[in-house]
């Protein structure tokens, strides 16, 4: 199983150059059955990453471009009257895919954002009185532009909390960008990628992740981290119990990717920036979700043993 995962990572890394860490985190997020938020400037490879993930894992893929005039029906689907049968026939929206890329989610109005985010949390959607289950696996990768950019509706805390991780891709390294410029267009590579995992394998991996061992000592470390966010004065908001569950789940997936069947503090530390960063707020800067400095403080000061 481990080999297959390495293969998956290697394949994605061929398309998304020089972003091994982020790719690994994204895969860990998927294995932990969490949704992923990628926050970055346009043109950094967000879409490429999500498409590559979908292809390699053999998932059906849909992309929703969020704009300010997007309506919930555009996401979930609508019933259309069929003249032949004389009935309303439901036309499923783009959300009925295994991997959904919600592009520039913060450009849409809160109403449309909620439609997506509720689906993410429930795993099903209710349209016109009928509850329809979403496919399994169901994985949402949302991208958003930095909040400072014009025409954005910032996601509220309650909805940020639904994303297991928030990643930022960042500019590529010089060498990676050089080979990007010299090589083939990345988009052209995508259709040629072969699925490496099938649904059954993915499901068994996700099940295996849930059984990764978490010892008392490790839970104590997670509790120390969480308590620090709740008691230290520089934290405007502490981590919620959902946050601590997310942290533990992500750490399990990371340990699984590392090939271990138990979690060590280093796993928690590896996922902490992406799991906790968007859930924390600096006391001195309550408007932003730039938890980066706080996370660094946690990593540095909270006793790991």
């Amino acid at each position: 199983m481990r080999n297959r995962l390495d293969q998956v990572l290697a394949t994605i890394n061929q398309v998304v150059l020089g972003k091994q860490g982020q790719v690994r985190l994204a895969l860990a997020c998927l294995l932990a059955r969490g949704h992923l938020l990628i926050e970055d400037l346009p043109g950094m490879g967000k879409t490429t990453l999500s498409q590559a993930l979908a292809r390699v894992l053999g998932l059906s893929y849909q992309r929703i471009q969020f704009t300010s005039d997007l309506l919930p029906g555009d996401i979930l689907g609508t019933s259309v009257f069929d003249r032949d049968s004389g009935q309303f026939i439901f036309h499923p929206g783009p959300i009925f895919a295994e991997l959904v890329l919600a592009d520039e989610i913060n450009r849409a109005t809160p109403k449309s954002q909620s439609a997506l985010l509720e689906a993410m949390e429930e795993g099903q959607v209710t349209i016109e009185g009928a509850t329809r289950p979403l496919p399994d696996p169901f994985f949402v990768i949302a991208t958003q532009n930095p909040a400072s950019q014009g025409g954005t509706f910032a996601l509220p805390e309650s909805q940020l909390d639904r994303f297991l991780m928030r990643l930022s891709l960042g500019y590529p390294a010089r060498a990676a960008e050089k080979s990007l410029l010299l090589g083939e267009a990345r988009r052209d590579l995508l259709p040629r990628m072969q699925p490496l995992l099938d649904h059954a394998e993915l499901a068994s991996m996700q099940a295996a992740v849930a059984t990764v061992r978490v010892s008392d000592a490790l839970v104590d470390y997670v509790l120390r981290l969480v308590e620090a966010t709740r008691s230290q004065p520089q934290f405007g908001l502490g981590l919620s119990p959902r946050g601590s569950l997310a942290l533990l789940g992500a750490a399990r997936a990371w340990a699984f990717l590392e090939g271990r069947d138990y979690v060590i503090p280093e796993d928690v530390q590896a996922v902490l920036p992406s799991v906790a960063g968007h859930r924390l707020r600096d006391q001195a800067d309550p408007g932003s979700h730039g938890g980066g400095a706080l996370v660094q403080w946690l990593l540095r000061e909270v006793p790991a043993l």
């Binding site: 060590i264 503090p265 280093e266 540095r300 909270v302 006793p303 790991a304 043993l305």
Partner: peptide, 10 residues
């Protein structure tokens, strides 16, 4: 010296 936030493995 081990830093406070440093785990056993690191």
């Amino acid at each position: 010296r081990r830093l406070p936030g440093e785990g056993a493995r690191s």
